[in-house]
């Protein structure tokens, strides 16, 4: 049996998973929507991954999680490594593109830029305030225009005269877009304008003050949109590389970190059949009212977070477990 490593990246919109071997080669990959239920999404990812690997030949010995649900997923999977998505993306991308000097990342709810020099991340930034330059902005505008977001790229490429659209803020962009449509701009031009607006917003906010040098790798869900890729090439004057596995870089990165951590515990895909439940409750022990989250595995306490003092966790844990206990007793 050879060793394998599992990386899971649970974002706000999509959940990604990979299984890699000791050389970092991807043995199995999965990509699906989170749909507001990270635990269920992870279980579905596990099912897809398990179907792709030969259970008799390889054994997953270490697990890493990343993305905004990394703590919850880490608890559920008993992960050896829980890493922030910025580091995971940098590690993942560097393993495939060792010469990269700038990484653009636009996901569903956030966007980031990572500056790499001589193979080491030296600077990064993340969007701070709003989602104007992210995938969810594109999806909402796609709905307004009644065009599937997957077809955005083709529309944009057909445009010869992209419409100028203010990308500073979702609200402004939307009213600008409606106005341009009403005075007679073509759909293709408006979509190309939107792609340019996303890029302008990204470079002015996330990329502000950063030295953007090639080679540039662009990833995250929005990188699948060729319209945005072209707009980036126009704005930066560099060729933009998009990896076929670009959406999996976070999962790949955290699998590599798990591999290099040296921490190994045999992992079973059977965790899919275990019932996990999360309970969020306000502590109410003081006016701070910490929102404490408890993860239960088959009704028993597994992990929890959100408390600012140890008393908070004890209070909520006792309350929740007492409730669960009485429920279990009644059954």
């Amino acid at each position: 049996m050879s060793k394998a490593y599992l990386g899971v990246d649970v974002g706000s919109i999509s959940t990604k998973g990979v299984v890699i071997d000791a050389d970092g080669e991807v043995l199995a990959r999965s990509y699906l929507w989170t749909e507001g239920n990270p635990v269920r999404a992870v279980k579905r990812v596990l099912a897809e991954l398990e179907a792709q690997v030969d259970g008799d030949a390889v054994e997953v010995v270490s697990v890493g999680t990343t993305g905004s649900a990394r703590e919850l997923t880490g608890a559920v999977l008993g992960a050896q490594v829980v890493k922030n998505e910025i580091t995971a993306h940098a590690v993942g991308t560097l393993s495939r593109h060792p010469d990269v000097r700038t990484i653009f990342e636009i996901g569903g709810q956030d966007s980031k830029i990572i500056i790499v020099r001589d193979g080491v991340p030296v600077d990064y930034a993340m969007n701070t305030l709003c989602a104007a330059g992210t995938g969810s902005f594109l999806s909402s505008q796609a709905r307004r225009l009644d065009v599937p977001v997957e077809e955005f790229g083709e529309h944009a490429l057909r445009s010869k005269r992209p419409t100028k659209i203010a990308g500073r803020c979702t609200v402004f962009a939307e009213s600008d877009l409606v106005h341009k449509a009403q005075i007679g701009h073509k759909l293709d031009d408006i979509i190309a304008g939107l792609c340019a607006a996303i890029v302008g917003n990204y470079l002015n906010n996330v990329g502000k003050g950063k030295e953007v040098l090639g080679p540039i790798v662009f990833q995250g869900g929005v990188s699948k949109n060729v319209g945005v890729v072209r707009a980036f090439e126009k704005a930066t004057g560099h060729e933009i590389q998009v990896d076929d596995d670009g959406h999996l870089m976070g999962a790949l990165g955290v699998a590599l970190v798990a591999r290099d951590s040296g921490l190994e515990t045999p992992f079973s895909f059977g965790v899919r059949d275990v019932t996990f439940e999360t309970v969020g409750e306000e502590c109410s022990g003081c006016p701070n009212d910490c929102e404490v989250v408890i993860v239960l595995r088959e009704g028993a306490y597994l992990d929890g977070w959100g408390n600012r003092c140890p008393r908070g966790m004890e209070r909520v844990r006792e309350r929740v477990c007492a409730q669960e206990g009485s429920l279990a007793g009644a059954e």
């Binding site: 890493k83 922030n84 998505e85 910025i86 580091t87 991340p121 030296v122 990064y124 993340m126």
Partner: peptide, 13 residues
């Protein structure tokens, strides 16, 4: 998230 990434980055450097 930002602090984790910042510290990771400084260590890698």
């Amino acid at each position: 998230t930002r602090l984790d990434a910042f510290c990771d980055m400084l260590r890698m450097r």
